[in-house]
Write a protein that binds this DNA or RNA. Structure first.
Length: 504
RNA sequence: GCGGAAGUAGCUCAUUUGGUAGAGCGAUAGCCUUCCAAGCUAUAGGUGGCGGGUUCGAGCCCCGUUUUCCGCUCCA
């Protein structure tokens, strides 16, 4: 465990030292849970995006992509359930340090009153046996009437407070009812605070409540609200999918573990629309398809596992996560959800627009069901980066740090190096560089000894180094060195690009 | 949000009871080098996280604040 913590620290500092990820606003002491992608990081990230995008839109003839705006009509988040489902009033007990939802505490209290009523009824039922009349008992028992009155009273006040968003009122109600923490048993509560999942902002130069917009907490809704447009203009036939890559924003209570949980992050989502009753078949299909995508990056199966959800979100009828074994344990990397027709139905209801599909095969109209694949781009970055990071002990007693990135994702594909910085070698190397860069992201370096330059390229994951020496000037051959094996072979300059094409 | 620990050069760390801040690595420039880090020379780089207090004098003591890490908490 301590070893893994140590490893994770090394990985995060490597990410900074070698230009992959910087803390946001670092010269101003940083901004919590926000990170910037640096010169090498942005290349790796873009390559991951492209790899995913192609696997979706190029390798499937029934998946198209869109890029919807981050700003969307505020009603969308009402329809999706985000406004109501993620506005929790939270309260902490200072003694047990436990956090509760204030509304749940009060609801529990009301439930206890209900239990008391039920107990009274049971007691009475035993006492009166066959002559027991429940209705009569409920309306005459003094105790039951009191309990019911308090229940109703508390419920009314509580509902009003929730509707008015009166946080101070919720706290005084909790105190007045004498609600104690189940753990510590004390009434030592903090103030009630509102937890808002979504960031809000205002549109227009003059602030007004009616102009509140949310920064989207997921990209999926941009797909759902464009479903009709895409289906019609693309003449899409079910089953078909819509893919999107984009930023999303969530106000996490605790955001930690580097880029694993950030307030601003990027998702790669694909919503696949299917005929109702076929959704479980497609759910299974996408589970397998997505796992294969991960494995295609050369990371072994044992680093991944499925984790099925026991408790389903309000929109889903099946859900699983693909988890990856990060240095800090198995954590969610991608979610695959069967979202039913929840989203399209809700948007039909809230927008008043008919969102239906006429299926010419079955000759009927229906609201399509939807299977979602939703992968965290930043988490994928972290998974690939941390798996690639290796400290190696070499046979000659020295060591090296190498990023064994999948070649297709590496920021630089090749580095062109003159063996020494004289004798016309730099000129020759520049000529090769100018040719290779037309087809591959290439890098040129003439400073320091060749060994140092190799190690620097190893540290940022460059798969190949091409070295120009004196023989090159005579016979137009160069050595090409592999990052993974550190072995090199001699090939004609004319074959360099073909070699790269064959080996990347 | 609570509790604990920490914050000195780009990185890793020194400065042993308060007396004007150093090293290694790295970086830059040059030299030397014909294939795998740690050869030579020179140079740059710190208002000691920030603010206040005590003191003749604070990196060191006190208070506040902020950031990071660890634990708890929360999480579609």
């Amino acid at each position: 465990m301590a070893n893994n913590e140590d490893l994770f620290k090394k990985i995060t500092s490597h990410a900074k030292e070698y230009g992959f990820i910087f803390p946001s606003s670092e010269i101003y002491d940083g901004l919590g849970a926000v990170y910037d992608y640096a010169q090498n990081g942005v290349e790796l990230k873009n390559n991951i995006k492209q790899y995913w995008w192609k696997s979706m839109t190029q390798m499937h003839d029934n998946i198209v992509g869109i890029d919807s705006a981050i700003f969307m009509h505020p009603k969308i988040w009402k329809a999706s359930g985000h406004v109501d489902a993620f506005n929790d009033p939270l309260i902490d007990n200072k003694d047990s340090k436990k956090r509760y939802r204030a509304d749940v505490l009060i609801e529990d209290y009301i439930a206890k009153l209900e239990d008391k009523v039920n107990k009274e009824v049971e007691k009475a039922r035993k006492r009166f046996k066959d002559s027991f009349n429940e209705e009569q008992f409920l309306s005459t028992s003094q105790r039951v009437i009191e309990y019911n009155k308090e229940k109703e009273d508390v419920h009314n006040r509580y509902s009003k407070l929730m509707n008015d968003n009166d946080l101070a009122g919720l706290k005084s109600l909790i105190e007045e009812l004498g609600i104690v923490c189940p753990i510590s048993g004390t009434r030592n509560w903090t103030d009630v605070r509102q937890f808002n999942l979504m960031f809000s902002t205002k549109v227009g130069s003059v602030s007004d409540d009616s102009d509140v917009l949310y920064l989207r907490p997921e990209t999926a809704q941009g797909i759902f609200v464009n479903y009709l447009n895409v289906q019609k203009t693309g003449r899409m036939k079910i089953p078909f999918g819509i893919a999107q890559i984009g930023k999303a924003f969530r106000n996490e209570i605790v955001a930690r573990q580097f880029i694993f949980r950030m307030r601003e992050f990027e998702q790669m989502e694909m919503e696949f629309f299917v005929r109702p009753t076929t959704e479980m078949k497609w759910f299974e299909y996408w589970k397998e398809e997505r796992m294969n995508w991960h494995k295609s990056l050369g990371i072994p199966q044992e680093k991944y596992r499925f984790h099925d959800h026991e408790k389903l979100a309000h929109y889903a009828n099946a859900a699983t996560d693909i988890e990856f074994e990060f240095p800090f344990g198995f954590k969610e990397l991608e979610g695959i959800h069967s979202r039913t027709d929840f989203d399209l139905k809700r948007h039909q209801e809230f927008s008043g627009k008919k969102i239906q599909y006429f299926d010419s095969e079955t000759n009927e109209s229906y609201t399509p069901y939807c299977v979602e694949t939703s992968i965290g781009l930043d988490r994928t970055f972290l998974a690939i980066f941390s798996y690639a990071y290796k400290e190696e002990q070499l046979s000659d007693g020295s060591s090296r740090v190498v990023l064994n990135l999948p070649n297709i994702l590496a920021p630089n594909k090749v580095s062109i190096l003159p063996l020494v910085n004289k004798d016309g070698l730099p000129e020759k190397a520049h000529a090769i560089m100018d040719d290779v860069r037309k087809d591959f992201k290439a890098h040129y370096e003439e400073k320091d000894t060749i060994g140092k330059r190799y190690r620097r390229q190893d540290a940022i994951g460059t798969p190949f180094c091409v070295t120009v020496d004196n023989d090159t000037l005579k016979d137009n051959t160069v050595t090409i060195r592999s990052r993974s094996t550190m072995e090199q072979e001699r090939i004609p300059i004319d074959n360099v690009k073909q070699y790269l094409r064959d080996n990347l």
